[in-house]
Design a protein around this nucleic acid. Structure first.
Lengths: 144, 144
DNA sequence: TACTTTAATCAGAGACTCTGACTATCTCAA
DNA sequence: TTGAGATAGTCAGAGTCTCTGATTAAAGTA
């Protein structure tokens, strides 16, 4: 069944496999209360704290959605909100120690998956893939 | 901000951009009643008809979810269900003429996006990208 | 100071997905 | 041929994610 899927779809397949693996590893390590949507947002929180609006923009969701997800992350102990000293309207979302345990774990699994991929396609192709995807990001990432 | 995102995340960014473009083109052409989830499923329906279970498996959702989406596609006139002559339990989901108008349109926009990408990264990199992603599919697509 | 913009929240609704339970039909082995 | 188990699909209920619209509070600006 060697159909000619478009490149976007092929990316979807690989990305989903990666996400499932990382999600499973995180859940398996005892952090089973984080959902994929929450994790996607959490991954974008800066180590020095992020505003909700920034988070929403970079994750490409509305600020209401971002607020909803941060509420849950806060309740689960992964983030906390503090007043933004630079702006009385804003609050900074900060990662807690608990989050700082999970994130390396998730990154580690992602690296492991990448290593498996590299084993399958070879070092050269993997390097080209990363280079090409980074170039594509320049024209496909509305945030950066 | 040249962070080192993992390859899975980079794919997510590009894929989402592609999906948004295709979705917008379809909506713009007057087919604004199809959602992304419905479209993802519809794209997997074989021209000779597909069973719900097959569809669910290939889209990686439960058969209940697939059934829910097919219900909506049926109500909107994009698919119809007929008895499967080969199995009394099963029904075949068939694309209607309306669906056969939309799908080329969606594929056309996807091709247009790919052409833009190729213009940005070059013909050689585009060919390599497709080749590499196809190889990755071998180990990341649980369906095929 | 008055007007406009921005950050965040509240309220309500719709869409997507899942688990569990069930019926009808098919397959296969005794 | 018949009975047990597997498979295709549906119904019911719940949780999660996402959106639009309206509101409040604080900044920025003329």
């Amino acid at each position: 069944m060697a159909e000619e899927l478009n490149v976007g779809l092929l990316m979807f397949i690989a990305h989903r496999a990666m996400e499932n693996r990382v999600f499973a590893a995180v859940a398996n390590a005892g952090y089973g209360d984080v959902t994929i949507a929450q994790a996607r947002l959490m991954a974008r929180i800066s180590s020095t704290g992020s505003r909700l609006t920034t988070l929403a923009e970079s994750a490409q969701v509305t600020k209401q959605t971002a607020g909803f997800l941060v509420d849950q992350l806060e309740r689960a102990g992964y983030v906390e909100r503090v007043p933004d000293p630079a702006d009385g309207r804003a609050r900074l979302v900060l990662l807690t120690d608990k989050a700082k345990e999970v994130l390396p774990l998730a990154n580690g699994e992602a690296a492991a998956v990448e290593a498996e991929w590299e084993k399958h396609i070879g070092k050269r192709r993997m390097a080209q893939l990363r280079e090409t995807l980074t170039m594509l990001r320049e024209i496909t990432d509305p945030y950066l």
